[in-house]
């Protein structure tokens, strides 16, 4: 059964300003969904991590923000896609401390811990798609 999407917005992920914009949209939409302050902060932070990865590691891409309503549940889903180099070893990339870019190497694993549902699809040389959902 298709999940009812209440509203959706596509945003480019091509600059630092775009990342800021995505954080703002996620903040605003979770407020509208009635998320608690802690849950807002968690999903905004997760969005920031994956948006930054899309920009820095994926060479830029696109984000789809969706507000969901399923039965009594409400949530926010984020889909980040890029056509970058892809992730060779997803398990390794998810390990805390693993980085190829001089970061802390915590973004991907951290975002997974901050989400209710989390999935990565990636093909070397083709790109990466990260989907994360946080239910209220």
């Amino acid at each position: 059964m298709a999940m009812p999407v209440v509203k959706a917005e596509r945003c480019p992920v091509r600059s630092g300003d775009n990342v800021v914009r995505i954080r703002q949209i996620v903040r605003q939409w979770t407020v509208e969904l009635g998320f608690s302050l802690v849950d807002q902060t968690k999903i905004v932070t997760a969005a920031s991590e994956i948006a930054r990865n899309t920009l820095d590691h994926g060479g830029g891409g696109e984000a789809l923000v969706e507000s969901l309503s399923e039965g009594g549940r409400r949530g926010l889903r984020l889909v980040f896609t890029d056509k970058g180099p892809g992730i060779e070893n997803i398990d390794q990339a998810l390990k805390d401390g693993f980085t190829t870019g001089g970061g802390l190497g915590l973004g991907l694993g951290g975002a997974r811990r901050l989400s209710s549902e989390f999935s990565i699809e990636s093909r070397t040389g083709e790109g990466t798609c990260v989907t994360l959902t946080r239910w209220k």
Binding site: V38, Q40, T41, K42, T45, L104, L106, G110, R113, L114
Partner: peptide, 13 residues
């Protein structure tokens, strides 16, 4: 702030 503290812990920082 409390929400930031919780989030930082989940991030693993």
């Amino acid at each position: 702030r409390p929400q930031i503290a919780q989030t930082i812990v989940h991030l693993g920082v």
